[in-house]
Simulated assay, not measured.
Amino acid sequence: MSFDLMPVIWTAVSVLVLLLLQRWIHTHLHGLSLLITGRPQLAVVIYAIVLLPGVFLHELSHWLTATLLGVRTGRFSIIPQRQPDGSIQLGYVEYYRGATLGAFRESLIGGAPLIMGTAVILLIGFRIFGITELAVAIQSGQVDALTLALGDVFRTPDFLVWLYLLFAVSNAMMPSRSDRRAWPAFFVTMLILIGLLYVLGILNVLMNDLVGPLTTVFGYLGLAFSMAIGVDLVFMGFIALLEEIISRIKGVRVVYGSAEAPPGTDNLTM
Rank of each mutant, 00 (worst) to 15 (best):
F56R: 10
I79D: 00
L233V: 14
P84W: 11
G264E: 05
I245M: 02
T67S: 05
E94G: 01
T189V: 00
R72M: 12
P80R: 03
Y198H: 12
I249A: 07
A228S: 08
I109H: 00
I124T: 13
L64R: 07
A43Y: 06
R248T: 01
L123C: 12
L57Y: 09
F218T: 07
S258V: 15
L200K: 10
I25V: 11
E260V: 12
T156R: 12
T65G: 02
M174Q: 11
D144K: 08
D85N: 12
S77A: 01
V254L: 13
T118S: 15
I249P: 00
A182V: 05
V199S: 09
H28N: 11
T27L: 01
G102N: 01
I109M: 02
V17S: 02
V231L: 08
G98C: 03
L68H: 12
I121F: 10
L241A: 14
G222M: 15
V217K: 07
T65H: 01
L150G: 06
L60P: 14
G212I: 11
T73A: 01
R39V: 02
L146G: 11
G212W: 10
L148C: 06
V50N: 02
L60H: 05
R105G: 03
L108W: 03
H58E: 10
V45N: 09
Q83S: 00
A103T: 04
V120R: 02
L214Y: 07
L193N: 08
L32K: 00
L19D: 06
P40W: 03
R155T: 09
S33Q: 13
V188S: 10
P184C: 07
G212A: 12
A137F: 08
E243K: 05
L221S: 15
V188Y: 05
R105Y: 01
N208Y: 03
G111P: 05
G201S: 11
L122Y: 07
Y164D: 02
V136P: 06
W10P: 01
V120H: 06
L34D: 00
M174S: 15
S176N: 08
I246Q: 00
K250F: 09
L5D: 04
L233W: 15
T189M: 09
A149W: 05
I124H: 15
V44K: 08
L123A: 13
